[in-house]
């Protein structure tokens, strides 16, 4: 179950597909089935394009090329450069808490609900291979030290939503909701003037105990956090958000943070940054002057 579900029971078409490791859907206002199918195809194509290009699980893309470069310079295309610039800026503005090189820590952290906490010795072993500040990035060339990896997974899904919104927006002015695995963007009010209804579910509650419902007219809504991805030992819950500086999960972070913002990627980044703030998540969000929902 996704932490977010968009629903409405009348007068729209839903196109479903699987991409980016998640169920994806496109909600198209009105009763034009041909338009819905045409837009659905474009959305699916774009989601799969972004997945293929930036997934770290593939061996035929730019991310793989960078991760296997062994410290040699790699020249990247314009789109990858923009994403790396973005990652660089996010690293800066969070004082190093948001770090696209922290993925290597997943070799030792398996968040499967068990109590298997890794040895701190193993974490300390990996920690030198984490740190965006060790990467030489001068667009369009990147030099990634050997043993390090970059993972754009924390940005990719939200980026795909916003890119899809741009592509579909150029095709049609129809009101739509692009929902890739719970990260979504609403293009505008429906023809009736109504908003799209978005339910932010409580991942802890059984059934459909929606905590909040918002009626979104326009903008992005994203959730960071997953109640099922954690480790538990001695009564201490270790959430899956890792602090790249210590190699350990951020202590005291909420279970989930949902943020609404102008674009999906802004909402997603703010939600992630808030999780990285741990117990200060709510304070951080409050200071951003954005709309947010926190599930502790």
């Amino acid at each position: 179950m996704n932490p977010i579900s968009a629903e409405r029971k009348d007068n729209y078409w839903t196109v479903r597909f699987k991409a980016l490791g998640s169920p994806c859907e496109l909600l198209v206002d009105g009763d034009d089935l041909d338009l819905a199918q045409e837009l659905g195809k474009l959305a699916c194509d774009e989601a799969i394009r972004v997945e293929h290009k930036f997934s770290r699980y593939r061996s035929d893309n730019i991310v793989h090329q960078i991760n296997t470069s062994n410290g040699t310079p790699v020249e990247v295309d314009a789109e990858t450069a923009r994403l790396l610039d973005y990652a660089d800026q996010c690293f800066e503005m969070t004082s190093g808490k948001f770090d696209v090189t922290s993925g290597v820590l997943r070799a030792v952290w398996k968040f499967d609900g068990s109590d298997r906490i890794p040895d701190s010795a193993r974490i300390d072993e990996i920690l030198p291979r984490v740190g965006w500040n060790k990467v030489h990035w001068a667009s369009p060339k990147i030099v990634l030290p050997a043993g390090m990896e970059i993972d754009l997974g924390g940005i990719g899904k939200e980026y795909a939503v916003d890119k899809t919104a741009q592509i579909l927006g150029a095709q049609s002015a129809v009101s739509l909701v692009i929902n890739f695995g719970g990260d979504l963007y609403v293009s505008g009010p429906r023809a009736s003037g109504d908003a799209w209804r978005v339910g932010i579910d409580n991942p802890n509650a059984s059934g459909s105990e929606a905590l909040h419902q918002i009626q979104v007219l326009r903008g992005g809504v994203c959730t960071s956090g997953d109640a099922r991805r954690f480790l538990m030992r001695n009564g201490i819950r270790y959430g899956h958000i890792l602090d790249p500086k210590t190699g350990w999960p951020v202590r005291g972070a909420p279970r989930a943070v949902t943020v609404a913002s102008t674009t999906c990627i802004q909402a997603g980044m703010l939600a992630t940054f808030a999780m990285l703030e741990g117990a200060n998540a709510e304070k951080f969000l409050h200071e951003q002057g954005t709309r947010y929902w926190v599930i502790w």
């Binding site: 105990e209 819950r237 959430g239 279970r255 502790w296």
Partner: peptide, 12 residues
């Protein structure tokens, strides 16, 4: 009560 243990308290 840790903040992440307040799921029940949020119920109606």
């Amino acid at each position: 009560v840790q903040p992440w243990d307040r799921d029940l308290l949020a119920e109606d």
